[in-house]
C-alpha cells in the first residue's frame, strides 16, 4: 500500500513502488486530466506539481513521491489566473497537451514573484503542442502574468 497526497486528498493505492505516478493518477485515482503522450519526459503532457514544482509524472515513480504534495490539473482551482487566461485567450485547440502546459506555466509563475512573460516563455521549450498553439500559449502567459499581478495587488 502506498499513501499519496493528491489535490489535498489522501489516497491509499495497492501498487508496487516502481509504478510511474502518471499511471496511478490515471488508472487508479481516475484523475485523467494528466495526459500520457511520450512517456520519456520529452513533451510535458503529464506535468503535475510535486511540492509546488512542475515535474513529469511519466518518469517519476510513486515510490519517489510518498509523503509529497501532488497537485494535478484537477486540483488547480478554476479561478487560477492561468486557467482564466487560457479561456480568455482561447489557447487550446485539441487541448490534449494543455493540462501539462498549464501546470508548467502555473508552477513557473508561482516560483518567480514578478517574472516577465519573456522569462517564462524562455522556460517553455520543453513542452510539445502538435496543434501548434505556441503563439496562443505565449499570449496566455502574458495574460496570466497580468492577472496574477492584479491578484497580488488586491
Amino acid at each position: 500500500m502506498i499513501s499519496l497526497n493528491v489535490n489535498g486528498k489522501k489516497y491509499k493505492v495497492d501498487v508496487p513502488d516502481d509504478v510511474m505516478l502518471l499511471w496511478v493518477l490515471r488508472d487508479h485515482l481516475k484523475l485523467t486530466g494528466t495526459k500520457y503522450s511520450c512517456g520519456i519526459g520529452e513533451c510535458g503532457s503529464c506535468t503535475v506539481h510535486i511540492n509546488g514544482k512542475a515535474e513529469r509524472s511519466c518518469t517519476i515513480s510513486v515510490g519517489q513521491v510518498k509523503g509529497k504534495k501532488i497537485t494535478t490539473i484537477e486540483g488547480l482551482p478554476d479561478s487560477h489566473p492561468v486557467k482564466k487566461a487560457w479561456v480568455q485567450e482561447q489557447v487550446p485547440q485539441c487541448g490534449y497537451c494543455q493540462p501539462g502546459v498549464i501546470m508548467q506555466v502555473a508552477a513557473l509563475i508561482s516560483q518567480k514573484p514578478a517574472p516577465t512573460a519573456d522569462q517564462i516563455i524562455s522556460k517553455m521549450d520543453d513542452v510539445i503542442c502538435r496543434c501548434g498553439t505556441y503563439l496562443r500559449i505565449k499570449k496566455g502567459i502574458q495574460t496570466a502574468v497580468q492577472l496574477t499581478r492584479r491578484e497580488v495587488k488586491k
Partner: peptide, 24 residues
C-alpha cells in the same frame, strides 16, 4: 465566438479516448 469546448479542456475535464475508464 469563444469555442464551446475550451473551458472543459482547460479544466482538465474533457474526456479524450485514452481517458475513458470505469470512472467516467
Amino acid at each position: 465566438m469563444p469555442r464551446v469546448d475550451v473551458p472543459e479542456k482547460v479544466r482538465g475535464k474533457a474526456v479524450y479516448g485514452l481517458d475513458v475508464n470505469d470512472g467516467n
